[in-house]
C-alpha cells in the first residue's frame, strides 16, 4: 500500500516545556523523546495538559520555556504551517473540517501544494490540470484508506460525527506527513465507528506513520498503542510499554483523583 506521502517520519522531541494560561500551569517541565515509529498514546485525567502538549509540538502555542526539536532542528518558534510542512500534522479536539467544502475538496486541500519549478507554471493550464490530477488521485486514495470514498462529493458539514473524524484522518494521510498528532481521534463515537477508526489508525501505522494520539478510552489505548505516556497536572508521571504502564498503581490513582 502506498504510504500516501513522501515526507520521512521525524524524530520529535520536547525539552523542559512549561506553559501557563492565566496563572494555571498547563505543562510543567515536560521532556519527551518520541520514538520515530509506532503508536504512542498520551493519556491522563482532564486538564492534564494533553491538548496543550499537542499545541506546543505543532506550533500553535508557544511555550513559556523549553524547546521543541524535530530531526535535530529546533522548531520552538516556528509558525504552525512551517512545522506542518516538515511532516508534523495534527487534528483538533473539536474535529475541525471545512464544512462548506466537499469531502474530496477537504482532502485535496490537505495535500501538499506542489512545488513549482517556475513561478508562472501556476498559470499554464496543462500544468494546473496535471497537478490537479495528482492531488485528486492522492486524495481519493486517502479517502479509500479511511473508508470514506463513497462520500466524496458530499458536503463535509453533512457528515456524521464519526465520519468527520475519519475525514480528518484521511486529510492527515493525504498530507503526506510522517508524524501525526491526533487529539481524541476515537472519543465520542459509537462502537462500530470506534472500531473502524481504530482499524484506520492501525493501517496508517503499518504504512510507516508515527502516531501520537490522545485518548480516554483505556481499552482502545491497550489495543492500539505500543507505548503510553501518562500526563497528570502538567507533568509526565509514567511512560513505557502499554500493558506495563497501565498496570501501575500511580496511573490508576491519577485517574481516580
Amino acid at each position: 500500500m502506498n504510504s500516501g506521502g513522501n515526507v520521512a517520519t521525524g524524530q520529535l522531541q520536547c525539552e523542559s516545556i512549561s506553559k501557563s494560561f492565566d496563572g494555571v500551569e498547563a505543562l510543567r517541565d515536560v521532556t519527551i523523546n518520541f520514538p520515530a515509529y509506532g503508536v504512542v498514546a498520551v493519556i491522563g485525567p482532564n486538564g492534564a495538559g494533553k491538548t496543550t502538549l499537542i499545541n506546543v509540538l505543532s506550533g500553535f502555542t508557544r511555550p513559556d520555556s523549553g524547546s521543541v526539536w524535530l530531526n535535530g532542528l529546533e522548531i520552538t518558534d516556528w509558525l504552525p504551517y512551517k512545522i506542518a510542512r516538515q511532516g508534523v500534522v495534527r487534528t483538533f479536539q473539536d474535529v475541525r473540517i471545512a464544512s462548506e467544502m466537499s469531502v474530496l475538496d477537504n482532502v485535496m486541500l490537505a495535500c501538499a501544494h506542489p512545488r513549482s519549478t517556475a513561478w508562472f507554471s501556476d498559470l499554464i493550464p496543462n500544468t494546473i490540470r496535471a497537478r490537479e490530477q495528482v492531488i485528486r488521485r492522492s486524495a481519493e486514495e486517502a479517502l479509500r484508506f479511511a473508508q470514506l470514498h463513497d462520500e466524496l462529493s458530499r458536503r463535509a458539514g453533512d457528515l456524521s460525527y464519526g465520519q468527520r473524524k475519519l475525514l480528518t484522518l484521511a486529510c492527515c494521510f493525504a498530507s503526506g506527513a510522517g508524524t501525526l498528532l491526533l487529539d481524541e481521534p476515537i472519543a465520542g463515537v459509537y462502537p462500530e465507528m470506534a472500531l473502524q477508526i481504530a482499524t484506520v489508525l492501525r493501517e496508517m501505522s503499518k504504512c510507516g506513520k508515527h502516531i501520537v494520539f490522545i485518548e480516554h478510552d483505556i481499552a482502545c489505548v491497550r489495543r492500539l498503542a505500543d507505548e503510553v505516556i501518562v500526563l497528570a497536572e502538567g507533568k509526565v508521571i509514567a511512560r513505557g510499554e502499554t500493558a506495563e504502564v497501565l498496570a501501575r498503581h500511580e496511573v490508576m490513582e491519577a485517574y481516580l483523583d
Partner: peptide
C-alpha cells in the same frame, strides 16, 4: 487555523 495545520 485549519489551513495552517495542513502546511499552508
Amino acid at each position: 487555523v485549519l489551513a495552517q495545520s495542513f502546511g499552508k
